[in-house]
Amino acid sequence: MNFTLEIWRQFDTGEEGRYEDFTVEGIDPEASFLEMLDQLNERLTEEERRTVAFDSDCREGICGTCSLVINDTPHGPRQVTSCQTYMRDFEDGATIRVEPFRSTTFPVIRDLVTDRSALDRVIQAGGYTGATTGPQPEPNSMPVAPEVQEKAMDAAICIGCGACVAACPNGAAMLFTGAKVTHLNLLPQGQAERGNRANSMVEQMDEEGFGGCTNFGECSRVCPQEISLDVIGMLNREYRKARLSRDPKDPPTMLAQ
């Protein structure tokens, strides 16, 4: 298969970027999108041209490193991670536009590589149960119904790729944060800090410059883990409850409200 690629090139965070066109030929339809880029880079090296920078690591859809916008959609056409997108999903001869995840909270480092450390800082603000290493209670002393575990797991499987942010017209990270809050809210181990957790994670989102949710739903539509918008509802409820119980005179001011 042959393709024309319009790839975003940007040397540095501060530099201005532009699209550069490349053609790739003789690509096997079973090659993944990233393997197609590997082949392009191998050729660019032979031609003594600078290779295209892009992030990837596990290449099996679980680490959340790969982060391309393919034809205007984060991760591409099939709602799977960029690495799980295959060339058989495209028409032979097609022109494909490749960009980094777009968000002011994700500055471009080079070409298709962005800095998503803001998401780590949101977790630092409260995405844990607070248990430190040491003797812990016997797990079967706190039964968790399988349906509840399944629901918690549906949220816990977030891979932290940030596609939700890149897809959101407001640049919100509500799906990401909602997933963590939902996961821990549903389990007995997450109860003690639930209010504080929601509160400080939301504050951190605001500080990082993520936008608020206005129910476009784009985040869930591109999420490779198919995390449901319900997690945002859970986050909003928890946040409001936390703010009200904390200080009734200082009502919730989250951007998302």
Partner: peptide, 10 residues
């Protein structure tokens, strides 16, 4: 035990 205390949903 440690993992469950951290909220790992086994």
């Amino acid at each position: 035990d440690q993992a469950v205390a951290q909220g790992v949903p086994f």
